[in-house]
Design a protein around this nucleic acid. Structure first.
Lengths: 343, 343
DNA sequence: AATGTCATTCAAAGCGCTTTGAAAGCCTTT
DNA sequence: AAAGGCTTTCAAAGCGCTTTGAATGACATT
């Protein structure tokens, strides 16, 4: 059932039927009702591709997944973020498209997306320091918003980010207040912008209290469970092990906990742990009392906010870029305590 | 730059340029080269929507996410599965589209997808017992494959599944061999088909050894960490607590571990744990020696296999449905041991 | 009665591509 | 020299929709 057939059945022109269905005012109320009834009856809905070709809009939002950072996709954080965005897309009638790109081809991918008209806009995830994508997208004129920021990207662009520097600074201060001096940072990959900012906050807090940072206590990699475990085990074996650990995600914090327990130590007593908590649906930080003391910020919510921002930009691309900086809460759980008195 | 412009530049008809670019044989070799060079030079690539409209193929695969089972998307397992599928789509030039559907509207969503021509096929995830989607899709004639099976769906359809019954039977037997008799099952949601089969395997093993199943030791819910923790804590408080636990996923197993340790017990000694391990990228089951004894089957691999199967069906919808039953390995880790001798 | 206005409706062009059916040009065969 | 067969190219139709510009008819105004 297509528009032509429907209009023939109704004895109307395609124009009138199309207008009736799309809510244009210059259609007789009675006619409109007849058309709508017929559409329902014959189960008509317009062909997306044809509509898209005619209007120049695809009603689809793109997410480009590079093959290397394919890890991006398997990261549980990704799921919650994307689910947040998808909720908004759904409400507004947009679909979400993932384009899987072989490495280094990102620029070409965006160019293609624009030229082929596959999507109306894209969300940039996991921005690195000095991320090239921002310049490419600005140049292409393809509407986009960034989850996070990219230091040194130059352009003025739309983003939503957590105040990573401040939240990690506060977390570090919290540990310092408890008397800890040997504080380790199990960070994410440091070419990621967020990881840089977290480290900056951590270092800033140490500096203000006159604590000299120790390279041996600063680790950086993709935030898996095994990684959290491995680095913790490694650091606990040091002659001067940390008494507190800052972890970058719930997943690596789980590895941290495993290593601490394997070492026969008690979390929150022998070793304090603070993690960043993205409020992942499948990895809630406990039920009533949080398992981990944590800097908390919902990545699901961030997904919603970004999607809304992007749709606004698509509506009116001329609007000036928006920036939203979310503050993370510092919630106290059972994983932190005063520094153990040496004996 | 579109086809018309490109053909004007070249002094050729659109037909010839289109054919040259699409590898049709009836184009002079020299002409083809000229066309290809020009296309590269002017950075031409065909408009997806127009191509799609003309050919009737969208080169897109759909995944429908119901709002309720939106949890589906935030499930870390989902990420790995989808990444596996996305890899195949990428290689074959397909895109992946997520359609977010308000609840109960799934049937309409599929109907729309078909009628609007948005996708060439869909992957059905998380099939329930007697899943209605299979009948709908068969009726619509929209190519599809199922990740898992749906008992009682009647139709003959294509699927890839893990032998859940057998793997949970083996895991149970493994525990029985170690002398365990109080074996708990922390299952997934039991309207999910896979959970039913796992329970069947578990019960079968118990029955063959003459062990009477205990309802108090069988739990079922969405496989989060908190759930694993909660049920374990609850069961350990029983007057006759389990000495072994079967968990449905790494995530809930992590919660199980937490509860065991909180109770001051040692995993693998006081309580044995076996989990199903989907080989999630961010939640590897240890590095060399597995953390948990586990039934292991890569969900990433399943994603690849299903995607390939679907593309085959799209190529030739008349081909008879394929079915692949994957066997899970039973790998022994440090979470299982002989039943503690009562004292 | 002639003119102007408004509310409705329509025919046709256009979005950018693929594909059908025909034409043109050049060889080969008779 | 005419006919037939290849190879290569092309004009035009068609995919299903939106949208422009025009037409129609009813009604109010002069």
């Amino acid at each position: 059932m297509n528009l032509k057939q429907l209009s023939e059945i109704l004895g109307l022109s395609q124009t009138t039927v199309s207008r009736a269905l799309n809510g244009y005012p210059e259609v007789n109320a009675e006619t409109r009702e007849r058309v709508e009834a017929a559409a329902r009856k014959h189960n008509y809905s317009p062909n997306r591709r044809a509509t898209s070709l005619a209007t120049g809009r695809s009603m689809t939002i793109g997410h480009v997944i590079p093959a290397s950072t394919q890890h991006e996709m398997v990261n549980p954080i990704f799921g919650d973020f994307v689910a947040g965005a998808a909720g908004v897309y759904g409400e507004e009638g947009y679909d979400m498209l993932f384009s899987h790109v072989t490495d280094g081809d990102e620029e070409r991918a965006y160019t293609d997306l624009k030229r082929k008209g596959t999507v109306d806009g894209v969300i940039v995830q996991g921005p690195k320091v000095n991320d090239a994508r921002i310049e490419v997208l600005t140049r292409l004129g393809l509407p986009f918003v960034v989850h996070g920021r990219s230091s040194g990207a130059g352009q003025d662009y739309s983003w939503v980010d957590v105040n990573n520097r401040r939240s990690f600074k506060r977390a570090t201060e919290f540990l310092l207040d408890l008397g800890h001096r040997r504080i380790a940072l199990i960070n994410g990959l440091e070419d990621m912008d967020f990881a840089q900012r977290r480290r900056a906050g951590y270092l800033e807090a140490l500096a203000e209290r006159g604590v000299t940072p120790d390279q041996a206590l600063m680790r950086s990699a993709e935030m898996t469970e095994v990684y959290g475990h491995h680095e913790t085990r490694d650091m606990l074996a040091l002659s001067d092990p940390p008494t507190a650990i800052l972890a970058a995600s719930m997943i690596s914090a789980i590895g941290v906990r495993r290593a601490i327990e394997e070492a026969g130590l008690t979390i929150g007593k022998d070793v304090s742990v603070i993690t960043h908590d993205d409020e992942l649906s499948y990895l809630r930080n406990g039920q009533d009392v949080p398992i981990f003391t944590a800097t908390r910020s919902s990545v699901h919510q961030a997904g919603r906010v970004l999607a809304e921002m992007l749709l606004r930009r698509i509506e009116d691309p001329s609007v000036v870029p928006e920036q939203i900086l979310l503050e993370a809460e510092l919630v106290v759980g059972r994983s932190t305590g005063p520094v153990p008195t040496g004996d």
